[in-house]
Write a protein that binds this DNA or RNA. Structure first.
Length: 673
DNA sequence: TAATTTCCTG
DNA sequence: CAGGAAATTA
């Protein structure tokens, strides 16, 4: 069973750029650069789901895929001559639809993969042939000397295999290139025209980013440009979508995905960066973003279906950062009390890092082994808390290479879900659906139950579950844990749903408690306060209904944070003392044990407390960490660590250094959105 | 005594 | 990160 974390982990490893010439780098135990190994296979994470001929999202286009697939089975040779994009133009010289083009793209991606596989299989087969030949030859000259000649032959054979593989790779690359050109021809021109047209039309809604559709837009100019275009396309689609029947269902959804995916592809090519920045990767990102938004739309549609007598207000499409918007005050929400009383209890394994990108201009630490920095993804500036909206909020962020962080996407979807479901009519226990069957296996526990089924439409689980994968073990486990944790509470609050859509999984549950979002917030709070009192915590988690259990859990979190913090400090202090290199940073000869932001220790801390790296680590925290490090170091050097309670002295110092937590943390939800 | 913190374990 | 035990604090 794939746990959600597995899925995320795998995804991250799947976003490797399809660049056979990628320079090997990093590759520590965490394998932060999945594509670093030149021999590793390229993967296509979400794309792959889409691209499978039978893959769920593409199912409606399965015909097209199957057609191509069969043709491929019939003869590869003709295919080769025809060229990759040969059929991008239809019979009448007419351009194929976006869907067809995307299908072509997917098909070609499959071809590339197949080529690789076949090359491997073929290579094996050839080895077998060669071996047979060798046997025959050997019969004729049993007594002849073999040693050196065989060695030479072996070498030649391997060279030949290598060359063939290389050729096939080149061929695949060429096909990709051809396809990219075709894509450009098909969409780049159109996109450029549309762009021109729209701009001449005087559209100025540049800042009105639809965060629902574009959960996170890296703030680099490159991505902003793409986002802008995508927004425009989306606006257009929205307009036409409104004219269509809302209940159109999956067809519209798929069209939307394909259409915007095409626009994204066009965007990349318009800027001539398709190849320069790794078109496949960008395409993967585009698709992922599209999937996110499309899924959100589908969810909204489904919900609209079941809440027709409780129509969703326009605010159903808020930005993920709602509540921490520019005004700072959470916008009034019709169901504010409800959504606050029913925060997310999404329990997700936390090992969801996606170290995908090598840092830019990463400086080597002389003392410590080179490690990549954590994932460097900036959410849209609007999503950043005021304190992190600096222009250099991500000092080592490569401008144009920022994959969509899966966890962030996940969070976005969670929040969308919470908002959407908060508009559902209240459903209570004891209704027609109240059975252990649903409680056990159905991912829609009590939410599906309704005491007042006559007044509210019951929430048909199967309908919603259609096309949605049920989440497996991991979340179920947490569900049970949560249930245990909430023993003695009002049963009515213990409701929630699990949802999974492909590899994007959701778990939503209403009820008071701490969610991963709260955990994230707590971690960020740790940057300011290492020893927050329970009262402090209560003021900074207004959306949490505190009771003894929740309070102790939150306190326990901070205890764990401290533990981790001090363990790292001690570890690095000991290492520095042992290695006699009291400089953790570069240029720190004059300032021993300087904790620069380019050090491994900083990276570890940042990774732990700011995993998605979307928050600017306060300088004060770095200073305090540095201080703690020095304290540990001197204690170790002076032998004070032989005292059993030597750490307490340090703890006392550190606990006095808490600084006030920014007001942005007083708002409910994650400070990042 | 309750709340909090640390230490240890899984 | 959670749970539990022990130590510490108010």
């Amino acid at each position: 069973m794939d746990s959600p974390s597995d899925l995320f982990g795998r995804q991250s490893s799947l976003i490797s750029p399809f660049d056979p010439h990628i320079t090997p780098s990093g590759g520590g135990h965490g394998a932060p650069y999945p594509g670093a190994n030149p021999s590793s296979q390229p993967h296509y994470p979400l794309i792959h789901h889409l691209l499978q001929p039978g893959g769920a999202p593409m199912r409606s286009r399965g015909q097209l895929h199957l057609d191509r697939y069969n043709r491929e089975e019939e003869g590869m040779e003709g295919e080769k001559e025809e060229g990759m994009g040969g059929r991008l133009v239809g019979a009448g010289g007419k351009r194929l639809s976006g869907a067809a083009l995307v299908a072509d793209w997917s098909y070609d991606m499959m071809r590339v993969k197949r080529l690789r596989l076949e090359s491997l299989v073929f290579g094996d087969g050839e080895i077998g042939l060669e071996e047979e030949e060798e046997e025959e030859e050997e019969k004729g000259r049993r007594n002849a000397e073999r040693g050196n000649r065989e060695k030479g032959r072996e070498g030649r054979r391997r060279r030949r295999e290598r060359e063939e593989l290389k050729e096939q790779l080149e061929e695949a690359r060429g096909r990709l290139k051809t396809l990219q050109e075709k894509v450009w021809k098909a969409f780049g021109e159109r996109s450029a025209q549309e762009e021109e047209k729209r701009w001449s039309g005087g559209e100025q809604e540049e800042d009105e980013i639809d965060h629902l559709s574009l959960p996170f837009i890296p703030s680099s100019p490159h991505f902003q440009g793409i986002a802008k275009q995508d927004r425009k396309a989306e606006d257009h689609e929205k307009r036409s979508e409104e004219q269509r029947n809302v209940n159109g269902g999956g067809g519209g959804f798929l069209e939307g995905v394909l259409k915007r995916a095409a626009v994204w592809m066009g965007c990349g090519v318009v800027r001539g960066e398709w190849e320069r920045f790794g078109g496949e990767q960008k395409f993967a990102q585009a698709l992922k973003q599209e999937l996110g938004s499309a899924v959100a739309r589908v969810i909204d549609r489904v919900l609209r279906l079941y809440t027709q007598n409780d129509p969703l207000p326009p605010s159903i499409h808020p930005s993920p950062g709602e509540g921490r918007n520019a005004g700072g005050a959470p916008p009034p929400h019709p169901h504010q009390e409800q959504s606050e009383a029913l925060p997310l209890i999404t329990r997700r394994p936390d090992n969801r890092r996606n170290n995908l990108l090598p840092p830019n201009n990463r400086t080597k630490n002389t003392l410590l082994p080179p490690h990549p920095f954590p994932p460097l993804c900036q959410p849209h500036p609007a999503l950043l808390p005021p304190s992190s909206r600096h222009k250099d909020s991500s000092p080592f962020l490569p401008p144009s290479s920022c994959p969509l962080p899966i966890p962030l996407l996940h969070y976005t979807m969670q929040q969308l879900f919470t908002r959407s479901l908060s508009h559902l009519p209240p459903l209570h226990k004891g209704g027609i659906m109240n059975s252990d069957v649903y409680m056990e296996g159905n991912p829609f526990p009590n939410l599906l139950t309704s005491a007042s089924s006559s007044s509210h439409p019951s929430f048909p689980p199967l309908a919603v579950m259609e096309g949605l994968d049920r989440l497996d073990g991991g979340l179920q486990h947490h569900h049970e844990r949560d249930g245990g944790m909430r023993g003695g509470r009002d049963g009515g609050m213990d409701s929630g749903i699990y949802l999974g859509l492909g590899s994007i999984s959701f778990f939503w549950r209403s009820g008071e408690g701490l969610s991963p979002c709260h955990l994230k917030k707590a971690k960020l709070m740790f940057f300011y306060a290492r020893y927050p009192s329970s009262n402090t915590l209560k003021t900074y988690f207004p959306d949490v209904k505190f009771n003894r259990c929740v309070t102790s859990q939150l306190i326990k979190w901070f205890s764990n944070f401290r533990e981790f913090f001090y363990i790292q400090m001690e570890r690095f202090a000991r290492q520095a003392a042992r290695d006699g290199a009291p400089c953790l940073g570069r240029d720190s000869r004059e300032t021993p044990l300087c904790l620069g932001r380019d050090t491994e220790l900083y990276r570890i801390l940042n990774m732990h407390y700011n995993k998605s790296n979307d928050y600017q680590v306060p300088d004060r925290f770095v200073e305090i960490a540095e201080l703690a490090l020095r304290e540990f170091y001197t204690a170790i050097q002076t032998g004070r660590d032989s005292d059993p309670c030597w750490k307490k002295y340090i703890y006392k110092i550190i606990c006095k250094l808490d600084s006030p937590v920014p007001d942005s943390f007083r708002l409910p939800g994650c400070p990042m959105g």
